[in-house]
């Protein structure tokens, strides 16, 4: 018999619950695999989850904050959830997990170009945004960037010259 219905979530429990929160704009990937979850602090029934936005002006920030709160409350892990937006550390596309890159690919998005070994990701220089993408449909690297801007701030539009499909890439930033 359970003596207390009010349990305290550990940080691991909170992170596991957050892995069930989908990104509002690309639902195939969770906010954890997207790398937008920073520090997590658990203080009894109060949980503080730092949100590192992909872009400063991302209009999905409010929806993410709301869904994170709802998820933790509905799983009974917290009564009060605070989700501040922080830029420390800044989100970079290096924060997308290997599983997240695969989830992006499976849903038709090329993951951001991976940095070359030893590259300085502290600064996004112009070399870093050179158009390199692998077609998520046929795997060809014979692709051209149509435009480095797309339907959301974090996406660029490409065309595959092998299978002739247009596709989007999650931008390197």
């Amino acid at each position: 018999m359970v003596t207390s219905v009010r349990r305290t979530a550990g940080e691991a429990g909170v992170r596991a619950a957050l892995a069930r929160v989908a990104d509002p704009e690309i639902p195939a990937i969770s906010v954890v695999d997207l790398g937008v979850i920073g520090a997590v602090e658990v203080d009894g029934r109060r949980v503080r989850v730092e949100l590192l936005p992909t872009f400063v002006g991302c209009p999905a920030i409010g929806v993410m904050q709301q869904r994170i709160g709802e998820q933790l409350r509905s799983e009974g892990l917290a009564d009060e959830v605070e989700v501040p937006v922080v830029f420390d550390p800044p989100w970079t596309s290096e924060r997308i997990s290997p599983a997240g890159r695969e989830q992006l690919r499976r849903s038709g998005f090329a993951p951001p170009a991976a940095s070359s070994p030893g590259a300085d990701v502290g600064q996004l220089d112009e070399l870093a945004v050179l158009p390199v993408a692998e077609c998520p449909y046929c795997g060809s690297r014979a692709t051209t960037m149509e435009i480095p801007f797309g339907p959301t701030l974090c996406r660029a539009i490409y065309h595959c010259t092998s299978c002739r499909q247009p596709f989007e890439q999650f931008k390197r930033v």
């Binding site: 872009f55 400063v56 922080v86 830029f87 420390d88 800044p90 989100w91 970079t92 600064q123 996004l124 220089d125 112009e126 870093a128 945004v129 480095p148 801007f149 701030l153 931008k171 930033v173």
Partner: peptide
């Protein structure tokens, strides 16, 4: 400083454009 650092990465795309 943190906000400016983050903005700077995004502005790279604006400058290229």
């Amino acid at each position: 400083a943190l906000l400016a650092g983050k903005m700077r990465r995004e502005e790279t795309y604006h400058r290229l454009h």
